[in-house]
Amino acid sequence: MYKILKKFYSSFKEYIILIFLLLVSLSILPLNKKANVKTLRTYALGNMALVNSVISKFKNLYSLSRQVKQLEQKNAELMIQVNQLREYGLVNSELKNLLKLKDSTNFPLIPSTIVTKFIPGREGYLIINVGSKDNVNIGMPVVNESGFVGIVTDTTGEFSVVKTLKSPDSKLAVRDQRSGVDGILSWNGNEFIIQNVPTTDDVNIGDRIVTSPVSTISPPSLPIGVVNSKKTSIAGLLTDVSIVPFVDFVKLRNVAVLKIISNSEIDHIEEKLLKEVN
């Protein structure tokens, strides 16, 4: 019997020891609740925590730098997004104001967006994205929600050139809305000026200036700006009136073309009168 057992043990000792050790492992498992074992585990945990705290410092350094990079990237993305939203907000408010203008005016409006404000050699001109295909013709006034912007001077199929008030060769008949005094508004490269207004004419600082009914290129009463200052010439007979425009030509993005053209009959009579005078 002993020999058989010995032979059995020598043949299967790996498995016998394996089963024995597995049983020992399983029998230890319930001992985890005992106070002594808990103390041992707590002590072991304390030591491991100490080692881990040293390592985690390096780990945190690595993970923090990675986190900073991720946050920087996120920050850049959000900045672009905020910028876009701000842009949309501005465009939205402009378009809303244009819609209000469209509702309040009797003239049909052709909404458009400015393609470029910089045309080499043509200061004060801009190009808009509507053209003859959209029924835009030369001579049509261009406005935005703040007031008069300029006149269409050239058109192609899909684009038009607009001569704004800020063009040096732009001259526009304007009127003081309060007193009804007429004058010619021009851009001197620095400010808008109504030149040679008689000092006896009733023009005060703060008066609203609008397009004049005598103008053949724009409908009357389109807002232009307000009187900012007056400079009397040396002789004391004439005054140069400085105007601050309602339209911000720097921020200009969306405009609308007023679908009217100057009355050719009036032009014809004016030409005839001029010929008679000459």
């Binding site: 050790l21 020992v24 498992l29 001992l31 585990r41 707590t42 072991a44």
Partner: peptide, 24 residues
């Protein structure tokens, strides 16, 4: 087998886990 048993025990002690689980 014995080596695994001992290392499992040490692992349980060091890790602060359930003693007996890694041993098994």
């Amino acid at each position: 087998t014995v080596y695994g048993f001992i290392l499992g025990f040490l692992f349980d002690i060091f890790s602060g886990g359930l003693i007996g689980s890694a041993m098994f």
